[in-house]
Write a protein that binds this DNA or RNA. Structure first.
Lengths: 209, 209
DNA sequence: CTTAAACTGTAACTTATGTAACACAACTCA
DNA sequence: TGAGTTGTGTTACATAAGTTACAGTTTAAG
């Protein structure tokens, strides 16, 4: 399982060995639904390649993007759901082609005491997710949409490594929980300020952004 | 340490014994600052009596209320901060008189493998905090201020057990991260709808709310 | 090629929220 | 008692964001 090489910086060899035998590699294509609201979670996923988008739904059917998971990251909400066999509060979608390692729930507990690196990893994951959620709250509560939009574009740039963002205005609107018209308006404004250039399904970020 | 009685429903006797010897009881008065931004966290607190308000600060000095901690609850962010000796991202204030048990950071790890009830408690705490944060996000992202205000009042009612909320308009405004005028306006509206009655520093919730 | 669907631009309008200013009442404390 | 502080009510206005509507363009599908 050479795919697990990237984990060797995080975990000790014996744990990686165990992961290889008890974990399952799963592959998803861009846009695939990895996890949905209300489903029971029996595995904890570790993202090996690609990027996963994690969403939250509210009672009225509104969705908002919570955060992204990428290399060697993992969703701690999955973890705690697993342990208590609870249903998922979130939805996960493959942003691009994704490879992930699914750890069966019974191992989570076992490894916690057996492998210090696992315990540290789990705790660090919890913390990272907390910080991401706090960032979300900060962003939504204190920043206006134009700032949030810029932050969103930059984050996309960081994750994809490209200055050309491939997305329609309406998908962006969905992820920021607003309407298409508003996004179009703000994007046009950014274009007028020479910070971006708009194409169909593509946004090119300029240096000034 | 009879104060720890309430924990007996959660933890096994041996663990409570250990808590009694290695933990420290701390007392705070209404309004006291329990934890501040940027401070190092060396203890993990378990709330025995009273209610603790947990806030988040952003770069521009804005604050927002994240959630409340009450009986037997604990702040998982403190936990993960402890383990990595990181600085606090949040501020905690005593909503009323508070008694809490502070667990030294070196025990957290030790107990994790030693006491299953401790591990379960920690995991459940993580999960509860996640859910609270998700609720915050949902509230801020999808609900208008009037709905959030009503939810806020009801939460206060639930925590205090009283239909009379003691708070000034400006403290409410602070906790919902808005301005006093806006809160006064909305409260007056609720009063006109006969859902509440306003007094100085007091709001009486009616049944219709 | 034709038709439908998806994407984008833009205008006109509504509403929620933020802000500034001021009056007055109620407390508090010297 | 009187001065200062804090809390509340209210007006008037500015702005961000949501909504509806529609036109034009590009892409996809048959």
């Amino acid at each position: 399982m050479s795919n697990l090489d990237s984990l060797s910086t995080v975990f000790e060899p014996e744990l990686i060995q165990e992961m290889a035998t008890s974990g399952t590699l799963q592959y998803f294509k861009e846009g695939d639904l990895i996890m949905d609201y209300g489903k029971y979670i029996r595995m904890m996923p570790i993202v090996l390649k690609g990027t996963v988008k994690v969403y939250k739904l509210d009672d009225n059917g509104n969705e908002i993007l919570l955060y992204y998971l990428s290399d060697n990251e993992s969703c701690s909400m999955a973890y705690s759901c697993c342990l208590e066999a609870r249903k998922s509060e979130v939805k996960a979608i493959a942003e691009d082609d994704v490879e992930l390692l699914a750890i069966p729930h019974n191992k989570l507990d076992e490894w916690l005491c057996k492998f210090p690196s696992w315990k540290n990893y789990v705790m660090r994951s919890f913390n990272e997710r907390f910080i991401e959620l706090l960032k979300s709250i900060e962003s939504i509560a204190f920043h206006k949409l134009d700032e949030r939009l810029i932050a969103y574009l930059k984050e996309k740039q960081r994750l994809s490594g490209s200055s050309v963002i491939k997305a329609s205005h309406s998908t962006i609107a969905d992820e920021l929980a607003t309407s298409r018209v508003v996004i179009s308006r703000l994007l046009k404004q950014l274009e007028n300020e020479k910070k971006i250039i708009l194409y169909r399904n593509e946004i090119k970020l300029m240096n000034g952004l």
